[in-house]
Amino acid sequence: MARRVYATPEQLTEWTGEPAPADAERLLTRASEDIDDALLTAVYAVDSDGMPTKPAVVQALADATCAQVEYRQETGDSGTGAAGQWDSVSLGPVAMSGRRTTAAPGDVDLGDRARRALERVGLLRVIW
């Protein structure tokens, strides 16, 4: 099954108002994976490729994906998710320290704007 990517580099440029980074496709793929993980129990119409068919949902997923890329860039996370789990991360020669989150396994660290884009079309339910 092909990976679903909900936004294009052009949509990312429009969202942020800045040129898309050189690795935009990778960032959008990782952000789309985050969105998929957040929507594991969401119900919406899809085509044979698993892509949404309702225009409002298509737009919400694109917006949420761009917002998630923006969030990961603001938090210094290149798309691995490590920055959301550790106080300090180094890649050479690998050093991690102090967990920052106590989220349950499988929880997705969505940015607020991404979460709101999904909530507006009813893909995420807010339970108080």
Rank of each mutant, 00 (worst) to 15 (best):
R115T: 09
G111N: 08
P93H: 11
T101H: 09
I35E: 01
S97W: 12
A42N: 03
V121R: 06
R4H: 06
M1Y: 05
V69A: 08
W128K: 13
A45H: 03
G81E: 04
L39N: 00
V57Q: 00
A7Y: 04
L110F: 09
P93S: 14
A104H: 13
D109L: 10
V57K: 00
L39C: 03
R115C: 07
S78W: 12
E10F: 03
W86Y: 15
L27C: 09
A67H: 03
D34C: 08
S78Y: 09
E14G: 08
T75I: 14
M96H: 10
V69C: 05
W128D: 15
P52N: 04
M51A: 06
L39R: 00
D37P: 00
R100S: 15
S88L: 14
I127V: 15
S32E: 02
A82N: 11
A83R: 14
Q68T: 02
E33G: 07
V126I: 11
P19E: 11
R26L: 10
T13R: 13
A56M: 02
G81V: 03
V57I: 11
V5R: 09
R4T: 07
G106M: 07
L40I: 09
G17P: 03
T102W: 13
A38H: 02
I35V: 15
T101P: 02
T41W: 09
W128R: 15
A20L: 05
A104C: 09
A83D: 10
Y71H: 15
I35T: 03
R113N: 12
G50D: 04
D107Q: 13
E25M: 08
D47M: 02
A7Q: 04
D112E: 13
V69G: 05
A42Y: 00
R72T: 04
A38C: 03
A24M: 02
E18K: 14
P105R: 14
E14Q: 12
A60I: 03
G111V: 08
E10P: 00
M51S: 01
E14L: 11
G17F: 09
R3E: 08
G111P: 06
L40N: 03
L12Y: 08
P9Y: 07
A114T: 04
V5A: 03
V94E: 13
P21W: 09
A60Y: 04
